[in-house]
Simulated assay, not measured.
Amino acid sequence: MSEAANTPVGQMIEGRYRIVRRIAQGGMATVYEAQDERLGRTVAVKMMHTQLAQGPHRDQFLERFRREARSAARIANPHVVQVYDAGESDGRAYLVMEYVHGVNLRHEMNEQGVFSVRQTLRVVAETLDGLSSAHQVNVVHRDIKPENIMLNDRGRVQITDFGLAKATSQATLSSTGMLLGTAAYLPPETIERNEATPQGDLYAVGIMAWEMLVGHVPFISDNPVTLVFKHVHEDVPPLTTPCPGIDPAVARFVTHLTERAIDARPADATAAAAELRDVMRTLSVEAWQYRRPASADATDAADAAGFDGARTPVGARLAGA
């Protein structure tokens, strides 16, 4: 039986949340648009898959749901999706979250291919702002990637999915947790020493920025073992190589975020955000407008998508920042 059948449109969760439609489905949970009948507002309900709720690792997945609720509840920031409620219904854990009108960054990447410096730095700045609030209360996200960066209908960033988050005092990553992360964004210290730190979040932000500006991640492999090996043993190439003409200050900033040595990166998102503000103050109009030319790489992801400069509505809002 499908998850849609298990949670049909119109079902009431705990006598309060009426399911309206399915929004997305992942390996662990399905997210639904729902109506909070008590407060008369639209919310998102994230519900654990039935097979996990009934499986041998049920307690582990329940703990992830609880951890996501606790972590997000500690963070007060407009760039972090709020969690309103949590509980269990028919043996399945659920979270009730702020409903974000928009798309995730991965969708925008697939639509647009490559981004201008202005678009990229806006996303990075708002992501760092949200992470700064998390790091200030000793929470690291541990799973920063485009799929977890929502862009609302105003083009603003809202970070979601704190399911892997932990207090920094408990910041180790189990082998199971590592599998739940995404290899393309994992920092070297997580791969090598099982560490999850604020600087690890920054590494993932830096990889994401590199991907936005170039059109693909710096390390590509069909083999996840090969991919993590590259993160541990190879430096992320400077942006000046795939992006001829990019302002050197922007390239240096992204390199700072993606240094292999953890101590070579900014201490946390607050420090990184301050550094980014300093960079942004130095940029010329031409530097802000820079976009990697499609001719720079014949295998560029934008070329593969047939990108012709058109933007989706969210992309247009990013462009107008």
Rank of each mutant, 00 (worst) to 15 (best):
M1H: 05
A5L: 14
N6I: 06
V9C: 15
V9N: 15
Q11F: 15
Q11M: 15
M12D: 07
I13N: 00
E14M: 15
E14P: 10
G15T: 08
R16S: 11
R21N: 09
R21G: 11
R21K: 09
M28T: 12
M28C: 10
T30S: 09
R38A: 14
R38K: 14
L39I: 10
A44V: 08
V45T: 02
V45Q: 13
M48I: 04
L52N: 01
R58E: 09
D59T: 07
E63N: 15
R64K: 08
R66I: 04
R67H: 04
A72Q: 04
A73N: 03
A76M: 11
N77C: 11
S89I: 04
D90W: 04
G91Q: 06
Y94I: 01
V96E: 00
N104D: 15
R106M: 13
H107D: 10
M109A: 00
N110I: 08
E111I: 07
E111N: 14
G113D: 01
V114W: 00
V117M: 00
T120N: 00
V123W: 02
V123E: 02
V124N: 10
A125S: 14
A125I: 05
T127Y: 15
G130K: 01
S132G: 05
A134H: 00
N138I: 02
I159N: 08
L164G: 01
K166R: 13
T168S: 12
T172C: 10
S174M: 11
S175W: 12
T176I: 14
G181H: 03
Y185I: 00
L186I: 03
E192N: 05
R193M: 10
N194P: 06
N194S: 13
N194T: 09
P198D: 01
P198Q: 05
L202S: 07
A204P: 08
W210D: 09
E211I: 06
V214L: 08
V214A: 06
D222A: 01
D222M: 00
N223H: 09
T226C: 10
D235K: 05
P242Q: 03
P242K: 05
C243E: 08
G245F: 04
A249F: 04
R252F: 01
T255S: 12
H256S: 10
L257M: 08
R260K: 07
I262M: 07
I262W: 01
A267H: 09
A269W: 06
A273L: 14
D278C: 07
M280D: 06
T282R: 12
E286V: 05
Q289P: 08
R292G: 01
P293H: 11
A294Q: 01
S295N: 05
S295Y: 09
A298N: 09
T299A: 15
D300C: 00
A301T: 02
A304Y: 14
G306N: 07
P313K: 09
G315A: 07
G315E: 06
A316C: 13
G320S: 12
G320P: 06
A321E: 12
